[in-house]
């Protein structure tokens, strides 16, 4: 590329200089464009926060934050208006708790098997099969909960005990959906535990189970906890399963066989076009959305922080 001045004519020199200038300009333009692309993600976050906060402010002018957070009745569309979000929060948490129990039990068990017991060849077959679960659309899980799982519970406990829409089916199916996430993250944490710790325990005569539960799991505990927190956050934000299978009845209950309404299900129900823009009912979805955003963001930040701290310990 580079040519020395005494070997080239004036025109060649100018051509090279011109080419260099052009390349330099090109690089500058590209850098600005790439930076603009990277800024879109920042703008997205800013947009979400501004939107949720500005729309909620209008709502909180009419309903106090205290009443919103502590009221136990949710009926913003009738008058006198009742805007206690606890009925929706309890619905969301009930489903998420069931999903959490299912996904932690199955996910942790699978992670221990895959990381501590399964030979490499078996692991290579089982892991992709389990990961198919994570790629199935949520609307399909909703269908599965409604048409397969709920009828099973209805025949077990009697149709008058189990509502067609209930928290239990939605929670179990959601747990199945989140299981690969919990399993993969927990397994990553366990695989990162140094081999020497395992070898030391084996040398002392420990069985595989003892190595897994008394050496590997305590060492990987923070990663396992993080996987569980991220899984729960996913369950809280999930929409279609609860919309299809858990019902549309705001309900402050601990009975998983009853119909409930989750926060996400309420948001899509109202925003689907039923409420007029600017009405109090329309504003409620942004207040509920803001609460949902704060809950999931908080859990994600905690989960990610635990994972990054854990990585530093062993890497």
């Amino acid at each position: 590329m580079t040519t020395t001045p005494n070997e080239t004519s004036q025109e060649q020199l100018e051509r090279v200089a011109h080419g260099r200038r052009r390349q330099h300009l090109e690089q500058k333009i590209i850098t600005v464009l790439l930076m603009a692309a990277a800024l879109i993600s920042i703008l997205t976050t800013v947009g979400v926060v501004i939107l949720l906060v500005s729309q909620s402010v209008g709502f909180f002018e009419e309903v106090s934050i205290w009443n919103f957070l502590t009221g136990t009745e949710w009926a913003p569309h009738v008058s006198p208006q009742k805007s206690g979000v606890l009925e929706l929060v309890s619905g969301t948490l009930l489903v998420a708790a069931i999903a959490g129990i299912v996904s932690l039990t199955l996910g942790l068990g699978a992670a221990i098997f895959l990381s501590e017991y399964a030979p490499e060849r078996l692991r290579r077959i089982l892991k992709p099969i389990l990961e198919v679960l994570a790629g199935i659309p949520t609307v399909v899980y909703g269908y599965f909960a409604l048409t397969f799982v709920t009828p099973i519970f209805q025949s077990l406990f009697g149709p008058d005990q189990v509502s067609v829409f209930n928290a239990l089916s939605a929670g179990i199916v959601m747990g199945l959906m989140i299981m690969p996430m919990v399993s993969t993250l927990s397994e990553d944490a366990m695989v990162a535990v140094p081999r020497s710790l395992r070898d030391a325990a084996y040398a002392l005569g420990a069985t595989r189970f003892e190595v897994a539960t008394k050496v590997v799991m305590p060492a990987a505990l923070s990663g396992i906890v993080a996987s569980f927190i991220l899984g729960l956050s996913r369950a809280i934000g999930e929409t279609m399963i609860v919309k299809i299978a858990a019902g549309a009845t705001p309900n402050l209950t601990l009975n998983p066989l009853e119909s409930i309404q989750a926060m996400t299900a309420y948001i899509v129900q109202i925003s689907g076009g039923e409420a007029a823009q600017g009405s109090i009912e329309y504003k409620t979805i942004f207040a509920v959305g803001l609460l949902l955003f704060i809950m999931t963001l908080g859990m994600n930040i905690v989960g990610r922080w635990i994972i990054s701290r854990f990585r530093q310990r062993y890497e």
Binding site: L39, S233, S271, T296, L297, I301
Partner: peptide, 26 residues
């Protein structure tokens, strides 16, 4: 740039309904 990276990781965890609300308004 660290902020951008952290922000992208957090965006991956934002529930999809929230994106729906953003899309509806924006």
């Amino acid at each position: 740039n660290r902020l951008i990276e952290l922000n992208i990781a957090n965006l991956a965890g934002v529930p999809s309904v929230i994106y729906g609300l953003l899309g509806l308004a924006m």
